[in-house]
Simulated scan of single mutants.
Amino acid sequence: MSLISLLMLTDSRLPAGTHAHSGGLEAAVAAGRVAEAVDLHAFLLGRLTTTGPTGAAFSAAALEAASGPDDALLAELDAEYEARTPSPAQRRASRKLGRQLLRAVRAGWPGPALAAASVVHPDGPHQPIAFGAACAAAGVSPHDSALASALGAVTGPANAATRLLGIDPDTVTAVLAALEPHIQDTADAALKAALGPVSEFPSFSALRLDISAEHHSTWEVRLFAS
């Protein structure tokens, strides 16, 4: 059942709001940094090796905390993830996605794990915390939670690429397939990190994404929320 649940949680048809976010790709396209498939590969690999390990480690740890549930640890994880997200625009986007994810998952897997995650912050949990709690509620393993989180770091922007670049969806699929070993390595490293102290979880910088997110949030016309 956990595999079926995992597939449902990672299905783009889950109304979790990710379709409205480009993960910074819209700003990168507007700046001329991403224009074709080779640029998209580089952009996604950059996200995967910076924000990817952080989100995956926190998702795996949140799964364990929500399984208790351990309210204090969930709150600590949320606060530590906040500290690793310097961009206010990205913080807002992450919490919005967290709220939407919990709302969607309650319909299929209601339980104490989701309730515990929903109260870690007045504005709702960050997305990785919410995803970990969702995986706990659905019976997904920590390894699969980390793997799905790492995959999600690239699939959201990849889906946005078809609208932003007018790129052939088959080409996007080829780019994602080429990233498969990197996704696996990211998940493995994140799961290992999640076994240590929270203060030592991954904290890699993606300064261009942070700066671009702030600029993007001021645009009057945009296709994506982030």
Rank of each mutant, 00 (worst) to 15 (best):
I129H: 06
F131Y: 15
F131H: 05
F131E: 06
G132I: 03
G132Y: 07
A133N: 03
A134E: 00
C135K: 01
C135P: 00
C135N: 01
A138T: 00
A138M: 01
A138Q: 04
G139P: 03
V140P: 02
V140H: 02
V140K: 00
V140D: 04
S141V: 02
S141R: 00
S141W: 00
P142C: 11
P142R: 02
P142A: 08
H143F: 10
D144Y: 10
D144N: 14
S145Q: 08
A146F: 09
A146P: 15
L147M: 12
L147Y: 14
L147N: 10
S149H: 08
S149F: 04
A150N: 10
L151G: 12
G152D: 13
A153F: 08
A153C: 12
A153Q: 13
A153G: 08
V154A: 06
V154Y: 05
T155G: 03
T155E: 10
G156M: 11
G156T: 15
G156A: 14
P157V: 09
A158G: 09
A158W: 04
N159H: 12
N159E: 13
A160I: 13
A160E: 07
A161K: 08
A161P: 09
A161M: 07
T162I: 15
T162F: 10
T162Y: 11
T162Q: 13
T162W: 11
L164G: 10
L164H: 12
L164Y: 09
L164R: 12
L165G: 04
L165M: 09
L165W: 07
G166V: 03
I167A: 03
T171E: 09
T171R: 15
T171V: 14
T171Q: 11
V172T: 07
V172S: 06
V172M: 02
V172N: 04
V172A: 04
T173G: 15
A174S: 14
A174T: 14
A177V: 11
A177R: 09
A177Y: 03
A177I: 06
A178P: 01
L179A: 11
L179Y: 10
L179M: 12
E180H: 08
P181A: 06
H182E: 12
I183T: 12
I183K: 01
I183S: 04
I183W: 03
Q184A: 14
Q184G: 05
T186S: 08
A187F: 03
D188V: 11
D188H: 12
D188P: 05
D188M: 07
D188E: 14
A189D: 12
A190R: 07
L191V: 03
L191E: 04
L191H: 05
K192R: 15
K192N: 13
K192W: 13
K192Q: 15
K192I: 14
K192L: 15
K192H: 15
K192M: 14
K192C: 13
